[in-house]
Design a binder for these strands. Structure first.
Lengths: 138, 138
DNA sequence: TGCTCATGTTTACAAGTGTAAGCAATTACG
DNA sequence: CGTAATTGCTTACACTTGTAAACATGAGCA
């Protein structure tokens, strides 16, 4: 009885997966360009992060298992593709960060950054320009 | 040989302690008002978070051990006080969040929030007013 | 067809975290 | 003064996360 690469894609989750720090590095690569083979990802990360192949592969498996990646069998290997959008993940992280740190509002964060991380004149100008372009929702 | 409550305050760390999610809840209470006894904190959190006394006490101990809290013995109990400022912790979290999600810059975050979480006309006005008050550093 | 290489799977393991029971000692109360 | 209640300390345990070795199997080449 032969055994093709097993499709282990998650239960079905597609919305809002929790991505850990290490996993994030892999997702970034795939958000930037997909699909990719594990080989590509491994070689990119063996340098940048000094991870062993096994480490990268484990993370790919975990991401697939939790539904953050889709895999398409190709011979005995997979092509990996993000199953969640970067902006959705960022939105989730942002939401929880704002809630926890600043009661969910943006203003206090901006005030905080201005005070503690400092903004240049140029930053301020850019932000103002940005605000002018935003169309108010709600 | 009698045994007074042991002073287990951290090595000396005072700057930049990593505070976990659960611990954060305790710190909030102490940043809001300090010093407090464990009793106070326990009763506040038994409701809000449905934590058992033991849980709260463990977290207090961990926070003390890592230098996030100072303790002042009082009979057989302690008075707990934050050893780190909230704004310093927030600053650290903010820095790492901005780095990871938005390359360290504020503008993309604001843009993101505008798009994904939406801002009211009033929010935008407030932000503009805020920017006008900021004195550019650097 | 046999062997080596690449690739995914299983197992591992330490540190960190959430959550808490149980013990010891001290204080408070009858 | 003796007993109950309070409070901190020790220990525990499962789950997550970072990091990876060992293993099995299919693919490609000799």
């Amino acid at each position: 009885m032969s055994k093709k690469p097993v499709q282990r894609t998650a239960p079905k989750a597609q919305e809002s997966v929790a991505i850990t720090d290490a996993e994030w590095d892999i997702m970034e690569l795939l958000w930037e360009k997909a699909p990719r083979t594990s080989q590509e990802i491994v070689s990119l990360l063996e340098e940048g992060r000094e991870w062993k192949r096994a480490t990268v592969v484990t993370l790919l498996a975990r991401l697939t298992a939790k539904g953050a990646l889709n895999t398409e069998p190709q011979g005995n290997r997979f092509l990996y593709t993000p199953a969640v959008e970067r902006s959705a993940c960022v939105a989730e992280e942002t939401r929880s960060f704002l809630d926890r740190m600043f009661g969910g509002a943006l203003q206090p964060l901006v005030a905080h950054v201005a005070e503690h991380h400092s903004l240049s004149k140029k930053d301020i100008a850019e932000l103002k320009a940005l605000l002018d372009q935003i169309k108010p929702n709600s």
